[in-house]
Nucleic acid binder design. Structure first.
Lengths: 115, 115
DNA sequence: GAGATACTAAAGGAAATGCTTCAGCATCAA
DNA sequence: TTGATGCTGAAGCATTTCCTTTAGTATCTC
């Protein structure tokens, strides 16, 4: 059966992005794939905690990983990242349109007013 | 790159965006300013709960509000929204650059289609 | 095989989150 | 003034989050 994607929730994505440790892990992954230990190295917490953060990131769809031997290698997946970006962008654009309409309305209602 | 201002944390912004009720409130606010009651109207929760959500949105800087008489009117503020969007975009662009470099590396290392 | 390495699972605890109810306080309308 | 409206503060409660420690398992190195 074809895997048809149901619209993935933005909840776990924004939730995952809300943590500074997880964001720094994502930033690290922009340099290239990394193991759990490598992701843990700069962080002031145990390896177990980092493993749990990775689970959160994977559940959100932000990170993929595969284990080869005893090393789990993580990579970024930008799919849901793009969806989150689009949600924010849509919202921002909608606000700006609303403000434009307000501006037009004010200009038409109260024309040629000197400040 | 100028950094004209103390960096406001993205933590509370993404945290605020992680809740579907709060995201729906933000979407409502793209239509124009709204009172607490108006924001609460479509939501299956008490007015008090909505008030708490608004406090979260305001603490994150996503919403501004002012009280006139007994009515608090909320509006969207896109400043931090833009910053969150930029963080995501920067990350995504960095990943794509990384993947490009990887592609170049593979092309140079293992030239073309011969084994 | 012995020991080091790289995780991973489980349990637990402090704090945060997302609600509720109840009570109260201004404000507006009649 | 009486009463309805719009919100707000406080307390409480169930759940989730973020971390710890402990105790593993699987893998690599020697």
């Amino acid at each position: 059966m074809l895997q048809h994607q149901a619209p993935p929730s933005l909840d776990p994505v924004f939730q995952a992005l809300a943590d500074p440790s997880r964001r720094s892990m994502l930033e690290r992954l922009t340099l290239g794939p990394a193991s759990v230990s490598q992701l843990a190295e700069p962080l002031p917490m145990t390896l177990a905690a980092v493993g749990q953060h990775i689970a959160v990131l994977e559940a959100a769809g932000l990170v993929k990983s595969q284990k080869v031997g005893r090393v789990r290698t993580c990579t970024l997946d930008t799919t849901v990242l793009t969806q989150a970006e689009k949600w924010i962008n849509d919202l921002r654009v909608a606000v700006e349109r609303q403000l434009d309409r307000l501006g037009v309305y004010l200009a038409e209602t109260k024309p040629a007013d000197e400040a």
